[in-house]
Write a protein that binds this DNA or RNA. Structure first.
Lengths: 244, 244
DNA sequence: CGAAAACTTGAGTTCACTCAAGAAATGTGG
DNA sequence: CCACATTTCTTGAGTGAACTCAAGTTTTCG
């Protein structure tokens, strides 16, 4: 995991969803990448800025943060290894949110002119990059449904189910055990709760016997039960191989 | 407006964001469309189905509805003339939500094999279609921020500002006046509120003197003030012409 | 080891929810 | 075109989930 190069990382993001031809792979490998590292808490991309490259996560956790006038913050998405955090910036340029490193992070930047080139030479890869942004949209819809219609405890349960699935695919979770290197204030900003209520909700989840959660280590005791309790259906993550 | 054909409708969705060449336009016009109409309340696309075409709104209002196990419903997005409701279906196929007609509706379906053809012959149009899905994502992020961090009254104000902008662009709002043909239960499902609280929030907005709202007719008295009150910044709608 | 950050608990408040019922508007059949 | 049924809107009352403020405890880190 640790010495995987950025191209491998990118290829592994696509392959659970569709097969890549050797031409596709060669083309991906021809894209110049700029590797960068960030410390915990650093801002990788500023809200309201204009971008000319997009960033693929190699290691660490990042979040998309929207800062409101009121001083409140909402984290609209969480990103881990293999996620293309701001690929939407390719077609939008304008960043309606910032990207912050929630842990020490390594990312690979791809210039937009390289992506543009791909739209000229590979319709298939173009559709796959496009797909990454639409999967992102599907995750966002699920978040909207959670924030709008699920009480705090179910919301947290749903998030843990989603993270379990996503972390498993990139090898960061095994047997429904994984690390969430986030403080409760960050979790609160993801789930739209106050810090105090976040804390109490975590305790409720522990008391319900659904998880063990010590420090950053999470163990889901009965994944099926948590899934059912929180109404989690993994299909929106589109981890299914098909012609795209 | 009424006799505008579907191709004009589509072209007018792109042109506020980028210029189209005559080749682009010719290519769009070469796509076969299937026009369909739906009555108020009808389901246009079912949740959990697989799709092979995507639908462009001609007239009426539709919503993307997520139905939860609890019986609750969240409307994750609202769509009006010119919106490509489920263009994300092109790259995903699987529908994580249903699309429902909130009023009588006319739509134009485009087959996915036609869109696929476009990815082979026009990189520029491909990027523009892709852009439509990423703008959709930007709207969703704003919704997440609203649901997570804004109280009911601001949430409603923000929605009205967004609708004002979007309806204006397609000629359905003038001077900050427009019709919202939705019942309070639907608005509640959009804003993540109960029907009773939705009703009281509308009354609060009226009492605050920010809008007149009789039947479906909405008049925003001071758009700048409503904008400021609800923290609305239209940039996320990407109504800006640039090379894409 | 001490300071800072993160977590936890208590207490009081507020925003939003549910249940219930009545009023107003809308639609439909005779 | 009216009368009745249904839907939608509105109001009241009580409840509950989540919030704020404040302080104490534990953990982390230099």
């Amino acid at each position: 995991m640790t010495d995987m190069d950025a191209y491998e990382r990118l290829i592994k993001t696509f392959t659970p969803r569709d097969d890549l031809s050797s031409d596709d792979i060669a083309l991906l490998r021809s894209m110049p990448l700029r590797i960068a590292t960030y410390g915990k808490g650093e801002e990788i991309i500023a809200q309201d800025s204009e971008v000319s490259e997009s960033c693929l996560m190699m290691t660490g956790w990042t979040g998309r943060a929207v800062y409101l006038e009121s001083g409140k913050r909402q984290i609209t998405a969480l990103h881990i290894a293999g996620d293309f955090v701001d690929l939407h910036g390719f077609t939008l340029k304008y960043m309606d949110h910032s990207v912050v490193a929630l842990t020490a992070t390594q990312v690979a930047f791809v210039r937009h002119d390289e992506l543009k080139k791909i739209t000229h030479v590979s319709p298939h890869l173009t559709r796959l990059f496009w797909m990454l942004t639409t999967i992102d949209g599907a995750v966002q819809r699920t978040t909207i449904a959670s924030l709008g219609r699920r009480p705090a405890l179910e919301r947290l349960g749903h998030l843990l189910c989603e993270l379990d699935c996503r972390l498993s695919v990139v090898g960061l979770a095994q047997d429904h055990r994984y690390d969430v290197p986030l403080v409760q204030e960050e979790l609160a900003d993801i789930l739209g709760l106050s810090v105090v209520h976040m804390n109490r909700t975590i305790q409720d989840l522990r008391k319900a016997g659904l998880v063990t959660w010590q420090g950053s280590r999470i163990v889901i005791h009965d994944f099926g039960k948590l899934t059912q309790f929180s109404g989690f259906d993994p299909r929106y993550l589109n981890f299914i191989k098909r012609e795209r």
